Amino acid sequence: MPYVKDDDGRLNNFAKEPPVYAAEPMDATQKRNRTLVFALGGALVVGLIAVAAVIS
């Protein structure tokens, strides 16, 4: 386990870091799903703002 000892004799333990990897480009299905989620989320936000405006 990696640790560092400072001048006062205290130990600082560090977490084990996960391996780093490059992200793979999205395929067409993932791009479509992302667009759909953004569109539905945007519609939800606009709808909630409209409801808030009507109520107030």
Results as ranks from 00 to 15, higher is better:
V37F: 04
P2D: 14
G42A: 11
A22W: 05
A23H: 03
D6L: 04
F38C: 02
A22V: 12
I49N: 05
G9K: 01
F38R: 09
V51K: 00
A22I: 08
I55G: 03
Q30G: 08
Y21H: 07
Q30E: 14
A52E: 10
E17K: 10
F38E: 14
D7T: 06
V46L: 13
L40V: 13
P18D: 14
L36A: 11
P19S: 03
P25A: 02
E24T: 05
S56F: 12
I55Q: 09
A39T: 09
M1K: 13
G41P: 07
P18T: 07
N13P: 03
K16Y: 08
A53H: 00
K31D: 11
N12A: 07
V45K: 04
F38A: 09
V4L: 10
V45Q: 04
A50C: 08
V45A: 14
I49F: 14
S56Q: 12
E17Q: 12
L48P: 03
D6E: 07
R32C: 05
F14R: 08
L48S: 11
N33D: 11
M26Q: 08
N12G: 02
S56H: 11
V4A: 07
L11F: 10
Y3S: 15
E17C: 06
G42I: 02
P25F: 01
V46S: 02
Y21G: 01
D7C: 02
S56D: 10
R32G: 02
N13L: 14
L36N: 09
A50Q: 03
P25N: 01
E24H: 02
A43G: 10
A28V: 06
E17D: 05
S56W: 14
A22L: 07
